[in-house]
Each structure stands twice: as C-alpha cells, then as structure tokens.
C-alpha cells in the first residue's frame, strides 16, 4: 500500500501481488451470492468470520490484557488494574451454573459505571445542547419549519394521550417530517452502499486486472 500501487503485471509473483489475488478471489466468492447461495460464498464468509475473530482476539489481548493489566501490574508494580482484572475473571463463572450468579457483580459494575458515564453525557449533548440551540428567534420560514418539525415529531412519540384531535393532527405532521428524514437517510445509504461497490470494482479492475491505469 505504501508504494505506488501501479499494476505491474502478474509476474513476478510478489507477496503484494499474492495478497491482491487472495483479495480478488475472495471478493468474487462473496459476489457470487448475487447469483445464488453457493459453497464459494460460504467458504469466503466463514473465512471472514474466522479471520476477524482471530484479529480482534489478538488486538484485545495486546491492548487490554497485556497493555492494561500485565505490563502495569508485573512491570510497573501498579496494583489498581487488578480490581478490573478480577472482575473480568468473575465473568468466567458463567461456565458453572452453580456459580453463575457471581458474574452479575462484574456486569453490575460495568453497567453502573457505563450508565454513569453515558447518561449525563447523552443528556447534555443530545438534549440540553439541542434544546438550548432550538431556543432561537423564529423569524424565518426555515426556523419555523424546524420548530414545527421538532415539536410535531416529539408529539408523535408521546404515548400518554390518544392521538385524536389536535394531537392527532400534529402527530400526523410529525410522521411526515420523520418520513422525509427517512427518505434522506435512504438516499444516503444508497450512496454508501454504491461507494463500497465502487471501491471493490476499482480494486478488481485496477489493482487486480490492471485494466485501468
């Protein structure tokens, strides 16, 4: 990747060229699913699952177990990482149904800590900051539309009253706004998926076949 990846023919068969071949063949295996399900697709899929599991295990092992636990404790003499280390080990009690309840303490610690971290942050970034920004003078059509969309969409998700009368009308407007949003999201997703196809096609036609230079 580092060098100028200009197509240089099939020979000499360098490690880089070998990697391109592996990538190209696996890409074709996966795309064969577009025709119908088949063993080539299954092979490539299982390979992907296995390889990524191995990759993640390695990264996690190095970053967490080695980097955060073993090195600080054994080399640095810091003892605090032992606490989460022990909590992590408790998770293995799940393999023994009689002691499985112990693992709940580790989960409780994790969920509690994470909720404490996340709830105020989400509340601030997603609710307070947005409410603060929404309180702007409504002097233009855009601002008015934004306000109507915001309030009506919120009303659509209000469950404590029947959606009749004014509330029903407002929530119907809300759903229209939501649908426009979903439409935009759909369009963006089409672009994203097509981008992936373009990337793969560029790989096949340029790096593998060398048809475009």
């Amino acid at each position: 990747m580092n060098e100028v990846s200009l197509w240089t023919g099939f020979w000499p068969f360098t490690p880089e060229r070998f990697a391109i071949w592996v990538g190209a063949i696996l890409t074709l295996c996966i795309y064969s699913f577009l025709y119908r399900d088949n063993p080539f697709y299954k092979f490539a899929e299982h390979l992907l699952v296995g390889v990524s599991a191995g990759y993640w295990a390695l990264i996690y092992w190095n970053a967490n177990i080695v980097g955060q636990l073993l090195v600080p404790v054994l080399r640095g003499g810091v003892l605090l990482p032992l606490v989460p280390g022990v909590l992590g080990l408790l998770m293995f009690t799940r393999f023994f149904p009689r002691f499985a309840w112990i693992s709940r303490y580790a989960i409780a610690f994790y969920v509690g800590g994470y909720a404490g971290l996340a709830i105020p942050s989400y509340m601030q970034a997603r609710v307070l900051a947005q409410v603060h920004a929404a309180m702007a003078p409504t002097v233009s059509i855009t601002a008015a539309l934004l306000l109507i969309g915001l309030i009506c969409s919120l009303l659509y998700f209000f469950f404590s009253r029947e959606h009749k009368g004014v509330l029903g009308g407002a929530s119907r407007i809300g759903i229209w706004f939501l649908m426009v949003g979903f439409g935009a999201s759909f369009g963006y997703t089409v672009m994203a998926r097509v981008s992936l196809l373009i990337g793969r096609m560029q790989f096949l036609f340029r790096d593998w076949l060398g048809l475009i230079r």
Binding site: A134, M135, A136, I151
Partner: peptide, 24 residues
Amino acid sequence: SDLGKAFVMVAIIVGVIMETAVAF
C-alpha cells in the same frame, strides 16, 4: 420519558416565544 418529552417541548416553545419577542 413522556413527561420528560413534555418538559422539553414546553421549554422549547416558551424559549422560542421569548426569543422571538426579544427579536421583535
């Protein structure tokens, strides 16, 4: 969370009315 939403909606509407009045 419904009550929370009601609170947010009222706050936004009150805020917008006041800000718009100030702007005028």
